[in-house]
Design a protein around this nucleic acid. Structure first.
Length: 297
DNA sequence: CATACGTGGTT
DNA sequence: TAACCAAGTAT
């Protein structure tokens, strides 16, 4: 079977070339892996590393985080971006204590029911923490499969059930080995079969790659670009939250007024943060969610 | 299915 | 410098 060979080659390469990442340490546990997966959502490895270490040092078990405030979780999140993930992780910890005896569950459905855990993360935790044989499909795997198997320059814009089927077909029968294959595919996608400039010369799958065999056809024309970051509500939210993150107590509205001059947009952004549960309003001041009143008032 | 959601490094 | 990119999720 040629598909089985893809996994075999990928694993062989992975054994030699995988990065030495702390959450890959054998037996590390479900919680550290869950935290790493959530942090890695849309965030580069190099920025996650220190945050992951600090987070797990402070909250080694879900119960530790559940006992602390959401505000502290948001603070520890620092500048990783998408701070709602910190809130989701805190909610996760609370749910794990309430529903799963403080442990990260092993089943896909139970994982999927956790806040901030979607299809990718549920599969990643089940496979990498518990050795379950589930296809793990992230953007790297979708790109690699699109190229190596389908011969296309890139995967489609949205995850499709077909991606799951195509990836499942590549997995070895033995669960532990399937999980290793998934890790290998992700690592290959991250380091070799990259989006911009794939390094086919270094690719262990090159000899079997359909895209390379076709002469590396170019992707279709320009896709519609999203809005620029500068000037968006997103940027304003970031500025507002940065002030609250660094403050030790309630912040007067007047101080938040300084971060953005457009009253309408600033109000809209703040309302969004409150709506998302990241920020709370107390009288004429704002605080991070669940912030405890400081002793010194 | 499109869009909102942060941040900072690379090209 | 502007655009692109990085282990997605929720609506």
């Amino acid at each position: 079977m040629s598909t089985t060979q893809l996994a075999a080659e990928a694993i062989r390469w992975y054994d030699e070339n995988a990065r030495d990442l702390p959450w890959r340490e054998p037996g590390i546990g479900g919680w550290p892996i869950l935290v790493s997966e959530v942090m890695l959502q849309q965030t580069p490895v190099v920025r996650v590393l220190p945050a992951w270490r600090a987070w797990l040092t402070r909250w080694p078990r879900p119960a530790d985080l559940a006992a602390d405030t959401p505000a502290e979780a948001i603070r520890m999140w620092g500048r990783l971006g998408y701070p709602r993930r910190a809130l989701r992780l805190h909610e996760c910890a609370v749910a794990l204590v309430a529903r799963h005896d403080g442990e990260v569950p092993t089943g896909l459905d139970e994982l999927l029911a956790l806040p901030g855990v979607g299809d990718y993360t549920a599969r990643a935790v089940a496979a990498f923490a518990y050795g379950r044989r589930h296809p793990v499909v992230d953007t790297n795997v979708r790109r690699l499969v699109a190229r190596a198997v389908a011969g296309e320059p890139d995967a489609g814009p949205a995850t499709r059930p077909a991606d799951l089927v195509a990836t499942e077909a590549l997995l070895p029968a033995a669960p532990e080995r399937a999980a290793r294959a998934s890790a290998a595919f992700m690592e290959l996608g991250a380091l070799v079969c990259t989006a911009r400039s794939p390094r086919c010369v270094d690719c262990p799958l090159a000899a079997r790659c359909a895209w390379r065999a076709s002469g590396r056809t170019a992707p279709p024309g320009p896709t519609r670009r999203p809005q620029r970051y500068a000037g968006t509500d997103r940027q304003v939210r970031g500025k507002l939250l940065a002030v609250l993150r660094e403050a030790t107590g309630p912040v007067p509205r007047a101080r938040l007024d300084l971060v953005w001059s457009d009253d309408l947009q600033r109000s809209r952004a703040l309302a969004g943060l409150i709506e998302d549960g990241l920020v709370e309003m107390l009288d004429d001041t704002c605080v991070l969610a669940g912030e405890q009143p400081s002793a010194d008032g």
